[in-house]
Design a protein around this nucleic acid. Structure first.
Ligand SMILES: [Mn+2]
Ligand SMILES: [Mn+2]
Length: 338
DNA sequence: GTCCCTG
DNA sequence: CAGGGACAACGCGGG
DNA sequence: CCCGCG
């Protein structure tokens, strides 16, 4: 570990990773620096790599820290300075390919930190197995006016349904206002199938708790409820990763926690400053994650299709899908003449 | 933050 | 050699 | 042309 005034060099995972401007303040609230951010990722390295290791990631970069200008970066190339960087090919819905960074070890993570990357958007597949999505992400999005108590209740409802189906799942804060619930999957299904399962789950959740949850893609139909964002499981879509840091003055983290903690978890309390001691004390809240079967949710989906339901609307940019209903908000739909 | 292109 | 732009999705379905 | 959605 060498050092001079402008550059800190960290020996990590067999590579020397440069952290330039280590003293630059990245998080104004408490003044954590770029080097503090690197130390944060070192402190959560074990659970971070369990969650993100081997996956392609997109960088969200703030070269001058929180409050500075920012941009996403998907394409990464190994340079002469860093010939060890590993990339993998990822695609967009229209087939465009990119070489994305793969989080193979903490050196790759810290390389990104040096580029001003606060957090990572993670693909639902490993680089080694691009044709299978091995993660189901239940994205709980509060409509305007919905507070965190309802989000907690929504997550408990997700857990109850999945438990009935024999599927183990694990929660994290998003770093913003919502929660994510993750299911590790056996690598047997592609992204289209995982999304179909997600549609079925969202609809079943709304059937059970229409007062609390909605599966409606169209905002005008959601009301003051929690939207179960099934489209976040569409092929090629990324999600803000576990242990990643938001561009918030406090450095709020997308922090995994245990179900026991659901009733008192407070997202603003989980920051780049508070999460490392939590991990040191409690270890990985997701340590028990093991690959699950998607079959129970696919049976739900088949039941809905047999009952005459259609697929749900896809996001913009995706081509029209078989059995997709018209992709238009109901209030704008052409009047049906039959 | 770094690269790459322009002037 | 200084300055500036690029760095993701941003095209697809409907009216 | 506009708008939808993250
Ligand atoms: Mn969300
Ligand atoms: Mn969402």
């Amino acid at each position: 570990m060498a050092r001079n005034d402008d550059v800190e060099v960290l020996a990590v995972a067999g590579h020397d990773v440069r952290i330039t401007s280590p003293g630059k303040v990245f998080f104004p609230e408490r003044g954590e620096t770029k080097l503090d951010l690197a130390r944060y990722y070192l402190a959560v390295a074990d659970p971070l790599m369990a969650a993100m290791g081997g996956r392609p990631v997109m960088l969200q970069r703030f070269p001058n820290g929180v409050g500075g200008s920012s941009f996403f970066q998907k394409r990464v190339a190994a340079t002469k300075a860093d010939p060890w960087l590993t990339t993998a090919t990822v695609e967009t819905p229209n087939g465009t390919t990119s070489s994305a960074l793969v989080a193979v070890d903490l050196a790759h993570v810290l390389w990104a930190v040096n580029m001003g990357c606060l957090g990572f958007h993670v693909w639902p597949n490993t680089a080694a197995d691009p044709d299978h999505a091995d993660e189901l992400r239940v994205d709980l999005d509060p409509a305007p006016g919905v507070g965190f108590p309802m989000i907690r209740e929504a997550a408990a409802e997700v857990r109850a349904l999945l438990a009935e189906l024999g599927i183990a799942c694990f929660p994290k804060t998003t770093g913003n206002r919502g929660l994510h619930v993750y299911v590790r999957l056996e690598p047997r299904w592609d992204g289209y199938t995982v999304r179909a399962a997600s549609v079925a789950m969202a609809r079943e959740l709304e059937r059970r708790r229409p007062d609390l949850l909605t599966a409606s893609w169209w905002k005008e139909e959601r009301g003051e409820r929690v939207f179960v964002d099934f489209n976040q499981n569409a092929p090629h879509r990324t999600v803000f990763g576990a242990w990643s840091v938001r561009a918030n003055p406090h450095g709020q983290v997308s922090a995994p926690f245990t179900w026991d903690e659901l009733s008192d978890v407070e997202p603003p309390d989980l920051t780049v400053a508070t999460v490392p001691p939590r991990v040191a004390r409690d270890g990985d809240p997701w340590a028990a994650m093991t690959p699950q079967s998607l079959d129970p949710l696919l049976e739900l989906h088949e039941r809905d299709m047999a009952a005459g339901l259609m697929d749900a609307p896809w996001p913009p940019v995706y081509p029209k899908m078989p059995n997709e209903p018209p992709r238009v908000a109901p209030s704008r739909a052409r009047k049906d003449t039959d």
